[in-house]
């Protein structure tokens, strides 16, 4: 092991940092912080620890699959507030809350806020490890999807406005004729646009295109 340290907010990494999941631990208690880091490292996870939510927000978070382990009752910015803050920043890191109190309303609030897990003390370490593995896996997937969406989005942006409009309507399940009527175009023109769209978006089939549109969230609300 390298870089084992008590230092509260040092990023502690395993030998191969690239592309591996990283666990962020925020706890004001140094004993807890270092014991959690120790635990994650013992199962070959990269760890970064912080003494407070503010410290974490100030740091540069790596663009890899990660999850956040924190105590609900953090001093300063609380766990739930941090959750809100991260959401505002559009950072969708899966959060595993740990609480010593186990009050239900708080758990509900946390889960609603997008927490992946809620562990009540005393918990078994295996539970935490499972939760962490699950969360990082989820984050990895989310990142994949995000990448796909981003790709589709950039393809979508190569379409002309007219083509985009055609795509939206086609994805909404409209027939060519209906699309033509909607856009006041000749049907044959719609066909040509549709072909261009299929080609530019790289869709192999109509179903493919519809799924892409869904992914992009651009299904036109057809006024039927």
């Amino acid at each position: 092991m390298t870089g084992r340290s008590d230092s509260p907010n040092q990023v502690v990494k395993a030998e191969k940092p690239s592309g591996r999941a990283i666990v962020f631990v925020i706890d004001d208690d140094v004993s807890i912080r270092r014991s959690l880091a120790n635990l994650f490292q013992s199962v070959n996870l990269d760890v970064a620890t912080f003494g407070s939510a503010q410290e974490m927000l100030q740091g540069n978070l790596p663009e890899v699959a990660s999850c956040l382990v924190l105590d609900v009752r953090l001093p300063g910015l609380s766990g739930l507030e941090l959750q809100t803050e991260l959401a505002k920043l559009n950072l969708h890191i899966p959060i595993i809350f740990i609480t010593g109190h186990g009050d239900v309303p708080m758990s509900v609030k946390a889960m609603k806020g997008g927490a992946v897990d809620f562990l009540t003390k005393p918990y078994r370490d295996q539970e935490l490890l499972d939760a962490v593995v699950a969360a990082t896996e989820r984050d990895r997937k989310r990142r994949e999807v995000e990448t796909t969406v981003a790709n589709l989005q950039s393809l979508f942006e190569t379409l002309s406005p007219r083509e985009q409009a055609v795509m939206k309507l086609v994805a909404a399940g409209l027939m060519n004729k209906q699309v033509a009527a909607e856009l006041e175009l000749a049907e044959i023109t719609v066909k040509i646009y549709r072909g261009r769209v299929m080609k530019k978006m790289g869709a192999r089939s109509l179903a493919d295109l519809i799924r892409m549109a869904e992914t992009l969230g651009i299904c036109a609300n057809h006024a039927e």
Partner: peptide
Amino acid sequence: NQPLAAIVTNGEACLG
């Protein structure tokens, strides 16, 4: 509880 929890976790890690 804080130190106790840390003890348990460190123990677990140690086993790991």
